[in-house]
Amino acid sequence: MMPTQTQLLLRTLLFWAVPLLLLALPLVTNAYVQFIANSIVIFALVALGFNFVIGNLGQLAFANTALFGLGAYGSAILVNSFGLPWIVSIPLAGVAGAAGGFLASAAALRGIRLYYLAIITLAFGELMRWLYVHGKSVTGGTDGMGLPAQSLFGFSLTDDRAKFYIFLVVAVLLFKATLNILRSRVGRSVMAVRENEVATASLGIPTARIIVFAFMWSGFVVGCAGALFALHTSYVFPESFGMLHLIVSFAMVLVGGLGSVIGAVLGAAALTILPEYLRSFPGMEELFFGLIVIAVLLALPDGLASLLRKLSPIFVERYYRE
């Protein structure tokens, strides 16, 4: 079932109503809940960007965490070494992520696919981590680097509630832009490459350019998320960008729903909240986390987003708009 015109209108209203309602969230949270909410916003962006390459473009590229780190370190370096205001570092961190995505796409363009692309991009991630550890003079090495207190137009950005507003605005902009892309000829081409690359080229679509773009957009989104993360934890160190982070963000994409935009939010929220509840089972947290992820994927191979689609056709994603 596809949504009707009224339902499409409702969906647009919902898209704007949810962040508007979330503006009131800091009024009802305590410091702990607010910190978790901020993490969810950032991880929703991480999952959105990751999903663009593995879900929409359909390439097994695992450079995501490396690009996230590039954004976080990029932001911290711009603030610390170049004295830029943090807010200005967000788009620049996005550009750094996009540049990293461009490098990753070079591998995909050389015809390296599937497992080979997976292992090359994993190696790229480890290489970046090596750079963070050994680039001591710039990155602070294993000790990492802190971010000095930030403010915006005279408002202090040290409180998690204040940070939340900025994070929310950046997230809404990036989600909106990603939806704009997916519902255009560009997004359809990205998915066409996933479905059948040979046939895509036969329609006059420059597949190589589409692949490069998808990697760069993914990198841009994740790079911006990295800049948010730098302020969120006000400290970046290499261990934040390791294999564990990669696996968790991969799980977020799958639990939310491969290729689904709303799934990125659901997956990020579910897998950020879950460990908090598992804290009451010390020693068993990782085990339960793994088991729950497996159970969800067995029960819902198309992720949590497929539940919403069953609930209402409002949540069926269409890749055009009239």
């Binding site: 704009n180 359809r188 998915m191 066409a192 479905e195 059948n196 329609l203 679509i205 055009y320």
Partner: peptide
């Protein structure tokens, strides 16, 4: 050579890719 996960309309639209106007920036900003 169809794209099975896309709808019929979306498939036909991919055939019109080159005819569709608007730069990448226009697309991103809607």
């Amino acid at each position: 050579g169809l794209f099975p996960a896309l709808t019929v309309l979306e498939n036909v639209l991919t055939g019109l890719h080159a005819q569709t106007e608007g730069s990448l920036v226009d697309v991103i900003l809607g």
